[in-house]
Measured scan of single mutants.
Amino acid sequence: EGLCAVCGDNAACQHYGVRTCEGCKGFFKRTVQKNAKYVCLANKNCPVDKRRRNRCQYCRFQKCLAVGMVKEVVRTD
């Protein structure tokens, strides 16, 4: 048992190249599959942790990419 590289929640295994929780795994997968574009309403440096991970989708997705999650391994079929 480890911690999610994105939000610090409990994470049992790796998803898309990085140890993440189920919440961040699902968020990343949905974002890539929908080709979603998010906008940060602040300064693009919002805190992303277990308690606040749902407040800014833009910053959460940027953190997913920054920690090494790989868009190309998300299935789109």
Rank of each mutant, 00 (worst) to 15 (best):
Y16S: 08
A66C: 05
N43M: 06
V48W: 04
G17R: 06
C59E: 03
C21R: 00
Q14T: 11
C59R: 00
Q14W: 12
R75F: 11
K71F: 04
F61L: 13
D77Y: 01
A36W: 09
K63I: 01
K71A: 12
A36D: 11
N54W: 11
D9R: 07
Y16N: 12
V32F: 07
G26T: 13
E72S: 11
V70A: 13
G68W: 01
L65Y: 03
R53M: 04
K44A: 04
G8C: 05
C64W: 00
G17T: 08
K63A: 10
K37T: 13
C46W: 00
N43F: 13
T20L: 09
K25Y: 02
D49S: 03
G17V: 03
Y38R: 01
R52L: 10
F27R: 00
N43R: 11
V73C: 07
C46V: 00
D77R: 04
Y58L: 02
V18A: 14
D77A: 11
C24T: 01
R60M: 13
R52S: 03
V39G: 01
L65W: 04
C64I: 02
G68Y: 07
K71Q: 15
V67Q: 00
R53Q: 14
D77V: 07
C56A: 00
L41E: 13
Y16P: 07
R75G: 12
Q14M: 14
Q14D: 05
K34D: 15
C64Q: 01
R55K: 15
M69W: 04
Q57W: 04
C46M: 00
K44S: 01
V18L: 06
M69C: 04
E22W: 05
V32L: 02
V74E: 13
G8M: 11
E22F: 08
G17H: 11
K63W: 02
T76L: 04
C13K: 14
C59W: 00
V39A: 07
G23S: 15
L65T: 01
N35I: 07
F28G: 01
R53N: 13
A36C: 11
V67C: 07
R19V: 11
G23A: 06
F61C: 01
N54I: 14
F27G: 00
R19M: 06
V48F: 02
C13V: 13
R51L: 12
C59A: 02
K71C: 05
A42C: 02
Q62C: 06
R52T: 15
N43Q: 04
N54A: 06
V73T: 15
D49R: 05
K29M: 15
G26H: 14
V6A: 02
G68K: 01
R51M: 12
E1D: 05
V18G: 07
L65F: 05
F28T: 10
G26S: 05
V73A: 04
C56F: 00
G68V: 00
F28Y: 15
N54S: 14
R75A: 11
P47E: 08
R30W: 06
G8D: 02
Q14F: 15
V67T: 09
A42W: 03
V74I: 13
R52F: 08
D77G: 10
T76A: 14
A36F: 15
V73W: 07
G68H: 02
A42D: 02
N35K: 12
V74T: 02
N43T: 02
P47A: 10
R30N: 07
R19D: 05
K71R: 09
R51A: 06
T31Q: 06
M69N: 07
R19L: 12
H15A: 06
A66T: 05
Q62G: 04
N54L: 07
V67A: 10
R52W: 12
K25T: 07
G17I: 13
A66D: 14
G2V: 05
R30T: 10
C64S: 03
A5L: 15
K50Q: 15
N45G: 03
M69A: 05
E72F: 04
N54G: 13
A36K: 04
C7Y: 02
V48E: 04
L41G: 07
R30G: 04
K25R: 13
T20W: 05
H15E: 07
K37F: 03
P47F: 05
F61T: 03
E72P: 14
V18R: 04
K50A: 08
H15Q: 03
V32K: 02
C59L: 00
R52E: 11
V39W: 12
L41S: 09
Q14C: 09
T76S: 11
K34L: 03
K37V: 07
Y16V: 05
